[in-house]
Each structure stands twice: as structure tokens, then as C-alpha cells.
Computed example of a mutant assay.
Amino acid sequence: MDKIHIEGLEVLSLIGVYDWEREYQQRLIVDVVLHVDLSKAANTDDVSFTLNYALVAQGLSEFASRSEYKLIEAFASNMVDWLLITFPALKKVQLKLSKPDILPKAKNVAVEFSREQIR
């Protein structure tokens, strides 16, 4: 299956379990692999036959800015579901959500989800 990768997309979201985490939006990093048939776009060089990854990135940023999840697990899982619903051409989504600024002695904490479109 063909894939589109969006890597290192910075988004802001209110997220966290503790009161001090919920005082302001935090920086999160989204890495997503979008499994989609790109053969027609590749054969025709016509943008109308591909997935508009700029819209995907914008949608992810808007999803994050409106979210108020406590756990990155819930956030990432719902983000994957949103992608599959919003972009029905997707066959599968793999998403890694990183919370890089949370542990002082660690570069990053992340969760990863992978789901296929149900037809």
C-alpha cells in the first residue's frame, strides 16, 4: 500500500492529568503514516486524485487545539478515529503522538496507534 508521511507536526493542546499541566496548552508532536492508494495520482500527475496532506495537517492542528484530554493515549486514539472518519480514502493510519516536554530527564514520551478503515 502507498503511504504519505507527515513527520514532526507540532500542535498545541490542553492535555494532562495534573492541575499544573492544564494551565496552558502544551506542545505535542504528531508523526502520522497515511495508507492510501496513490496509483491514480502517480499515473496522472493530477492533484485531485491524491490525499490533500495540507488539509490533514491543518485538521490535526485544529483537532489538537480543541481537545482537552487528560491522557495522550485517549488523545491519540481519538485522533486516529477522526482521521479515518474525515478522510474515507484512508485504508490505514499509524499515528505516533509525542509529549516531549513532560519528563525532565527524558527527551520524549510517546504513544503509537495503528488502525485500519472498517468498511
Rank of each mutant, 00 (worst) to 15 (best):
L34R: 08
I4L: 13
D31T: 00
I4E: 12
W20R: 00
S13C: 09
L38K: 01
L97S: 14
L38Q: 07
K40P: 04
T44H: 00
M1A: 10
I6T: 05
I85D: 14
I118A: 13
I118E: 15
R119F: 11
F113V: 13
D37C: 05
V56I: 05
K99V: 06
D37F: 02
D19L: 02
V17A: 03
P88H: 13
R27P: 00
D81I: 02
A54G: 06
I4Q: 09
Q25I: 08
I72K: 12
S13V: 03
S67R: 14
L103G: 00
D19W: 00
A76S: 15
L84D: 07
T86K: 14
I6Y: 06
D2K: 00
L14Q: 10
Y24Q: 04
W82T: 08
A89Q: 14
L12E: 01
L84T: 07
S65Y: 14
Q58K: 11
V17K: 00
K99M: 10
K40R: 10
R22G: 00
S61W: 04
E62K: 11
E62V: 07
K99A: 10
A89R: 14
A41L: 04
L60Y: 09
S39R: 06
I102Y: 08
E62W: 02
K107V: 00
K92C: 13
K105T: 12
R27W: 02
S13H: 02
L9F: 03
Q58S: 10
D31C: 01
L103A: 09
V47A: 15
